[in-house]
Simulated assay, not measured.
Amino acid sequence: MGADIDHRSVERAYARWAPIYDAVFGKVFAPGRAAAIEAAEKACGAGGGRILEVGVGTGISLPDYGTRNKIVGVDLCEPMLRQAVQRVTEHKLTHVDVLSVMDAERLALPDGAFDVVVAQFVITAVPNPEATLDEFARVTKAGGEIILVNHIGAESGPRKAFELCFAPVARKLGWRPEFPFKRLTDWAARHGGVRLIERRPMQPLGHFSLIRFERLNEPDRRSAV
């Protein structure tokens, strides 16, 4: 699918959000953040692991990860990331290895480098969700997990109608409110190296979901007829 959001508009939108993001969305998105961190740490196991948080933003999640894990955070928006760097310094978060400005569609990271990739409220705000998901799968090791928390568009009814009407405004604010779950399942089927293992409704109002994919060993497509 072609992009209906571009990188420049996303950067501008989140640069505007940066000074007030935590105040506006901190409590609203807290259940999703907590669930994503819990799932990521469970996937890493008792010994901990390497976690990539894509769209780390202001770093609001970083203090909540256990110190047995090593965290790498990336974000396209430099003003947001500056706040994350400040948070790491203020809280002395020694488990945070690196924070870097990076495009989620072109991660400058090695294949299979992470036990878990976490992306909270990201996949509806990138120009090319499928290309971004491909990158998540590339940097996740076999047996690891990709954990998304996101608003998922309604399949029918008044909420779907509202989301479609609101979509042009929402794009200017940096996201797609009508994003369908089918887009994720279609991507997984096409990719062939991931398996959906959970979709769980999240607050507020169950309009958000925690979505987990397991990273598989990709099938050898060269043998396909």
Rank of each mutant, 00 (worst) to 15 (best):
G153W: 01
I152W: 03
L196C: 04
W175I: 08
R200G: 03
L93W: 12
P110A: 00
A104N: 06
Q83T: 10
G174M: 12
D186L: 14
V126Y: 01
I123E: 03
K182H: 06
L133D: 08
E130Y: 14
G144T: 04
G144K: 06
R190P: 05
V169A: 11
M202T: 02
T185E: 05
Q86L: 10
H191N: 15
K141N: 08
A125E: 07
A108Q: 14
V194N: 06
R183D: 15
A142E: 12
E78W: 11
R195N: 10
F208M: 02
R200L: 13
R138I: 12
P168A: 03
A161N: 11
R171G: 13
N128H: 13
Q120C: 08
V116R: 03
L173S: 13
A167R: 06
D134C: 11
H151F: 02
A142G: 06
F179S: 07
P204C: 07
L210V: 01
V149K: 00
L184N: 10
V169E: 03
K160E: 07
V101I: 15
G112S: 15
R159F: 06
V101Y: 06
A154T: 06
A188K: 05
L93E: 02
L173K: 10
R195F: 05
R171N: 09
R176S: 07
G144L: 08
R183H: 14
L184Q: 09
I152M: 00
F121C: 10
G193W: 01
T89D: 13
E135N: 11
P180Q: 00
Q203H: 10
W187T: 08
E78K: 09
P127G: 04
E198M: 12
V85Y: 04
E155Q: 08
L164T: 11
R106T: 13
P204A: 05
K141P: 00
L184T: 07
F181S: 05
P110V: 00
H207W: 09
D111N: 14
P158R: 02
G157W: 00
E105D: 11
L210W: 08
G157E: 00
H151G: 03
F179D: 12
K182M: 05
P158Q: 02
W187I: 10
L196G: 08
L210H: 03
H95A: 04
F114I: 04
M202L: 15
M102L: 05
F208I: 01
N128E: 11
D97S: 13
G112L: 04
G192V: 07
R87I: 10
F114D: 01
S156W: 12
R183I: 03
A142I: 15
R176E: 14
L196E: 02
T94D: 13
E163G: 01
Q203A: 15
S156D: 13
P110D: 01
K172F: 15
A84I: 08
A189G: 08
